[in-house]
Structure formats: C-alpha cells, structure tokens
Simulated scan of single mutants.
Amino acid sequence: MRTIGNLLWLVLAGWWLALLYALAGLIACVLIITIPFGIAAFRIAGYALWPFGRTIVVAPGAGLLSIIGNIIWVLLFGWELFLAHLAAGVLLLITIIGIPFGIASLKMSVLALVPLGTRVVDAHDARVPSYSRQPTPVR
C-alpha cells in the first residue's frame, strides 16, 4: 500500500516539491556557511519525493545551533517551501482521492519551516515511548 501511495504522491505533488527542495539545496550550497542548509534541503527533498513509510523524528542533541539555523532557514528558504506545501495541500484537499495526500502535505509544511535538528527515518525505526509499546507476539 505504501508503494501505491508513494507513486500517487509522486505524480500529484512529490516531484515538484522535491524539485523545489533540490533547488533550495543547490542555492544553499553556493556559500560555504550555508552548506548545512543545503544538506538539510537535499535530505528533505528525498522525503518529499517518497514520504510514505518514513517519518521525521527530532534528532537527540539538537541544541541552540539548530534553533538559530532554523530561524535563518525560515528567512532564506523556509517560508517559500512552507507556502508551496500549503498550496499543494489545499489543492489536494479539493479532491476526494487527494485528501490523504493533502493532509500529508500539510504535515510536511511544518518540516519546511524547521528542518534542522530532525532526521528522516523508516517508520518502523521511529522511537516509540516505552509506555506505549505493545508486546511482540510470540510465533
């Protein structure tokens, strides 16, 4: 099911959102000081291209530098990418088939504002608090 969702996402919105992130990454890599922004943009471009089955987690140890970096990111690239996700989300929510993809785009819009201090991981590898883990069934 993830593959079908990813293929539909790719056709409906994923390719051009990933293209915007790749363009932001290329622009950010022009200057040495903004290369971390470029790396974050390329990482999120991959996520925007193929999001289902993966999730975003907050990286442990992300501190003051990631907060300052996210503020600079919002001023340079984040607000444009946020608006692109918002536009894609609204357009996808108009159709019945696009509702889950519109919701996904709106969830990704937050990531467009604060990409530093996060990681893209497989959905199965995401950390789940110990109090909410279900026991593994014995086979």
Rank of each mutant, 00 (worst) to 15 (best):
M1E: 06
R2H: 03
T3C: 09
T3H: 09
T3K: 13
I4Y: 01
N6E: 04
L7N: 13
L7M: 10
L8F: 03
W9M: 08
L12V: 13
L12P: 02
A13K: 00
A13L: 03
G14M: 03
G14Y: 04
L17N: 07
L17I: 10
L17S: 01
L19K: 10
L20F: 08
A24W: 11
A24Q: 04
G25K: 11
L26H: 13
A28F: 08
A28D: 11
A28Q: 12
C29V: 01
V30E: 06
L31V: 14
I33V: 15
T34R: 10
T34L: 06
I35Y: 08
F37G: 05
G38P: 07
G38M: 01
A40F: 10
A41F: 11
F42Y: 15
F42Q: 07
F42K: 13
R43I: 07
R43M: 09
R43N: 14
I44K: 07
G46R: 15
Y47I: 13
A48D: 12
L49T: 06
P51G: 06
P51H: 04
G53R: 11
R54N: 11
R54S: 12
T55A: 13
T55P: 07
I56R: 11
V58L: 09
A59T: 15
G61S: 11
A62R: 12
A62S: 15
L65V: 12
S66N: 11
I67K: 15
N70K: 01
N70V: 01
I71A: 14
I72S: 02
W73D: 05
W73E: 01
V74A: 14
L75Y: 10
G78V: 09
G78A: 08
W79E: 02
W79A: 14
W79I: 15
L81S: 07
L81H: 10
L81E: 07
L81V: 02
F82N: 04
L83F: 15
A84R: 03
H85L: 12
H85S: 12
H85M: 07
L86A: 06
A87M: 14
A87P: 00
A88N: 00
G89L: 03
G89N: 04
L92N: 03
L93K: 00
I94P: 03
I94G: 05
T95M: 05
T95P: 03
I96G: 12
G98V: 06
I99Q: 01
I99W: 06
P100I: 04
G102C: 10
G102N: 08
G102K: 06
A104I: 00
A104G: 07
S105R: 01
L106Q: 10
K107D: 01
M108T: 02
S109N: 02
S109Q: 08
V110F: 12
L111T: 12
A112H: 00
A112S: 15
L113N: 00
V114F: 11
L116I: 04
L116E: 02
R119M: 12
R119E: 14
V120F: 08
V121P: 02
V121W: 04
D122E: 11
D125S: 09
R127E: 09
Y131C: 06
Y131N: 07
R133S: 05
R133K: 11
R133M: 04
P135F: 06
P135K: 04
